[in-house]
């Protein structure tokens, strides 16, 4: 039996976000999945071309509209609904883009939503974390119609890109788009460091860094390691690091090869964000800090001595 799946692509106008390729892997884990990726953009061609190359994608559907220049959920949702007709399952990434949009789509479709899918067991059965990842819940839908979901990126590898070329089709969507929601601006700090959500290595700092200046030793070490930099909520709240660096239940959920927690106590809400990291290193002056319970390698000591020393040793 085939299951028709529509994945709403996330992109920045030119580049497809890696979370989309993870949605494809999630969808492919279902036998009989027939995968369509929807690209809604002001200019669809570059993004559609990247989506078409993902292994497992059967078709790319594009909706080009100047109103899609910035991803406003209220503007995109009715267009996604207009495409939804033939599909059984509608997926988007569990990023701020996907969470904002997909739930609005669920409302418009009057369909149940499964948030943060970490495994698909059948077309109607899913596993997802609840209570900040302290429990894993299996849900089974009894809905007669469609199911809507967001995909937990940290649970899936990105689908390979390059050797596929799915057909790209233009969809005509005739809906009046609302004008009640208007984009003003976005302030994204430009940095040469790898992206936190996809980096293989991440160095994160907590309240112990003491100031935005204190974080500089982490930027320096991360630069040497080719790592992204993350932060605990306490560090972000205190203004030591910008909000997009927050890792955890209410920040980013990541799964790097290496996660180095520096001066982070290991509160449950923080651990939720790093559980899927391959190797966790903890550096903390308190030998009893809960972060050591989950760390593969732990070092007790003063970070202001240890971090520069590590950097020197790496050379």
């Amino acid at each position: 039996m085939s299951v028709k799946i529509l994945i709403v692509a996330e992109h920045d106008g030119g580049k497809l976000n890696a979370s989309t390729a993870k949605c494809v892997t999630c969808a492919r884990s279902l036998a009989g999945a027939e995968i369509t990726v929807a690209v809604l953009a002001a200019e669809v061609a570059p993004v559609a071309a990247q989506a078409a190359q993902l292994t497992g994608v059967n078709r790319v559907l594009t909706v080009e509209n100047a109103a899609n220049l910035h991803p406003l959920a209220a503007v995109l949702a009715p267009q996604v609904v207009a495409l939804a007709g033939p599909f059984d399952l509608l997926l988007g990434p569990s990023t701020t883009f996907g969470k904002d949009l997909i739930a609005r789509v669920a409302g418009l479709l009057d369909a149940p939503q499964v948030s943060d899918i970490m495994a698909i067991e059948s077309a109607t059965r899913f596993r997802r974390p609840v209570y900040a990842g302290n429990a894993i819940l299996t849900v089974e839908s009894s809905a007669a119609g469609k199911i809507v979901g967001t995909v937990r990126s940290a649970s899936f590898e990105a689908a390979a890109s390059g050797d596929a070329s799915a057909p790209i089709e233009t969809a005509t969507v005739k809906v009046t788009l609302p004008t009640h929601t208007r984009f003003i601006s976005v302030s994204a700090a430009k940095s040469d460091r790898p992206d936190l959500q996809t980096a293989a290595r991440v160095v994160s700092g907590g309240r112990a860094l003491g100031s935005a200046d204190g974080f500089k030793i982490l930027y320096s070490l991360a630069g040497r390691m080719g790592a992204a930099v993350g932060a605990s909520r306490a560090a972000v709240d205190a203004g030591y690091a910008p909000n997009e660096m927050q890792v955890g239940q209410t920040g980013k959920i990541i799964a790097p090869e290496l996660y180095v927690a520096v001066g982070i106590s290991g509160a449950i809400q923080h651990l939720t964000g790093i559980k899927d990291a391959r190797t966790i290193v903890a550096i903390n002056k308190d030998a009893e800090a809960p972060i050591f319970e989950v760390a593969d390698l732990g070092l007790v000591g003063d970070l202001f001595q240890i971090i520069p020393e590590i950097e020197r040793l790496i050379g």
């Binding site: 149940p112 990842g133 299996t138 809905a143 559980k275 966790i280 989950v294 390698l297 732990g298 070092l299």
Partner: peptide
């Protein structure tokens, strides 16, 4: 519309080693 089939504890990470 979503039946809660089963709650399970999450897989636990193994406690690692201390380096000096």
């Amino acid at each position: 519309q979503l039946k809660l089939v089963r709650f399970e504890p999450p897989p636990q990470r193994q406690k690692g080693v201390r380096v000096k």
